[in-house]
Design a protein around this nucleic acid. Structure first.
Lengths: 334, 334
DNA sequence: GTGAAAGCGCTAACAG
DNA sequence: CTGTTAGCGCTTTCAC
């Protein structure tokens, strides 16, 4: 069933059918009815390829993320996809993993598919080495690239981020003011956002101590293996390091910290404080519940889509949008 | 940059360019080199629309799921997407929510996009009323439809499922044999798979008791709100119902059950046993850790993709593939 | 208002 | 081996 069949059955030209399909007003009400009727009767749907060929757009956005099963990224994908579809765009999802090569390949694939824009979900896409981000800048020469929680200084690349630095700075300060000086920073990502968080922690610490040496702990294992994370902390404790607080770069790490503290028989939060990040569903999963930083993911996504849609309409849009986070106080901090 | 530009610069016809693009062996090594060289130099990539128009396929599979941020579904999407890409297929993701209408719309959208097949991730797609599944059967008339953890008796619809009934039957029996007779079944979904699990629980219970009345508890609230789930159980307890075990239809519900038991100051598992389902990362998040049923999601996904690829190659494939689950024993059961 | 016709970029017969 | 050519289904001028 093509536009030709319809035009024939309706006794009009394919141009007319095309017009009613695209809601042109230059069609008499009568003709429109007739065509619509036929279309309905035969259950015809236009061929997206043919349309795409002519228009060179498929109203489709590419979404890249490292791992769709990551709690936080999954939520991001969900919001982004939802808001795109509300606006008549579809999305092609590419889970790229954490390897640069696979990422560049995925990017190419999306470009080949003629997506109208690309959304990179998660700060882990931005590496410290500029050359590792080059493929993003290159892609941006062809279509707008949106970074959710990442920043890259390049033309046609747009960032929407949470102010991780300030959130961590404030949270660390609060914990110190509650009387804890020996706070370990527990992290597992050196992504852009990861480094911003670390910097916030460090800056706050340095207002009161000379050095954070030994307190910044980088965990390399699986992002989901809570046992391994807990073990890491135990090993750390056994090296003789003293610490009575842990600020974690995400809720999973924080949960492991809670587990660790319980196994050590510390009272939380009296003897030991813990702070998480993301305010995910995990915060309710432990005892006591986790104080965590809410980085307003849905708001970020909403704005990201607004900006992207603006760009696609040819409007000027802000390069960089920053939202403040919020500390959600629960049982693991005083 | 089109195939014409390349053919011109390489001094060959577009057909030849097309041939090297598609790896036809009927091209002399010399010509191939020359063309490849030009392609490389100008960074040309073929237009997927034009190709799709001719071939009427885009090597793209539609993935439907209710909510990509659901822990379990997200994992399913991850595996499916990964394995598709390994086999040269892309995926368009549609998060449909739980409303029938939105689902039918998403299905149409995917068909319009000329996907080569559709994968429906999650048992929640299959309703009890046959008429509510009609849109799936209709779609299957045009392209293969794969159901991950759902079953539908219709032509060109293929199911890959975990044997939820048997898993639940066995687990329930085990808990009863450990001495607990008053086991509540705690669930929040009446999907196909949800009903199978319930049936397994019920059948096992009825081997030892007369009725499960009052013990089958359906929770209607948010799928993520652990507090609400815990409250539900408290309210249940306050009605006077006696129960010393909870079998939950997923790990989130089970986690809420652990929380409930702790708040009631029950000793787990001595006084109170709990079983979860999915063996997700949540099992490590509570104290003690959760015994849970592993339904081998990755295996299911792997087979699902194998079957789909077979179908796309025109092979005969099994309609229904069932895998056994496995009870992973941890601290919440004796 | 409506129709005719020229592409959009690629694949696959077919002919050489 | 290589080139010519006819579509694939739709949008969009440009006439009428």
């Amino acid at each position: 069933m093509t536009i030709y069949d319809i035009s024939e059955k309706a006794g009009v030209s394919i141009a007319t059918v095309s017009r009613v399909l695209n809601g042109s007003r230059k069609v008499s009400e009568k003709t429109r009815r007739k065509v619509l009727d036929i279309i309905d009767r035969y259950g015809y749907t236009p061929n997206a390829f043919a349309r795409g060929l002519g228009l060179n757009t498929m109203k489709t956005i590419g979404i890249m993320c490292a791992d769709s099963s990551d709690l936080y990224l999954a939520k991001g994908i969900y919001y982004v996809e939802e808001k795109l579809r509300e606006n008549g765009y579809d999305s092609i999802l590419c889970c790229t993993g954490y390897e640069l090569e696979a990422r560049a390949a995925a990017m190419n694939l999306l470009i080949t598919k003629k997506v109208d824009g690309i959304i990179m979900v998660g700060s882990n896409f931005i590496y410290e080495k500029d050359s590792d981000n080059q493929y993003i800048a290159n892609a941006a020469a062809q279509l707008p690239v949106m970074l959710l929680n990442g920043e890259l200084n390049a033309a046609n690349v747009y960032s929407v981020v949470s102010d991780d630095y300030t959130s961590m700075y404030d949270a660390t300060l609060q914990m110190m003011q509650s009387g804890i000086k020996d706070i370990v920073y527990f992290y597992n990502s050196t992504s852009y956002s990861g480094m911003r968080k670390l910097a916030g922690y460090r800056a706050a610490m340095l207002t009161q101590t000379d050095s954070t040496e030994g307190l910044e702990q980088f965990y390399r294992g699986s992002h989901e293996d809570i046992h391994a994370m807990t073990r890491y902390l135990k090993d750390l404790q056994e090296t003789g390091l003293q610490f009575h607080g842990i600020i974690a770069a995400d809720d999973t790490l924080a949960l492991a910290a809670v587990k660790y503290a319980r196994e050590m028989n510390y009272r939380i939060p009296e003897d030991f404080s813990i702070l998480g990040y993301n305010n995910s569903m995990l915060v309710n999963c432990c005892e006591p519940e986790l104080t965590s930083i809410d980085n307003k993911l849905e708001t970020l996504c909403q704005h990201l889509i607004t900006i992207l849609l603006g760009l696609l309409e040819g409007k000027e849009m802000p390069n960089r949008t920053v939202f403040p986070g919020e500390i959600i106080k629960r049982g693991t901090t005083r």
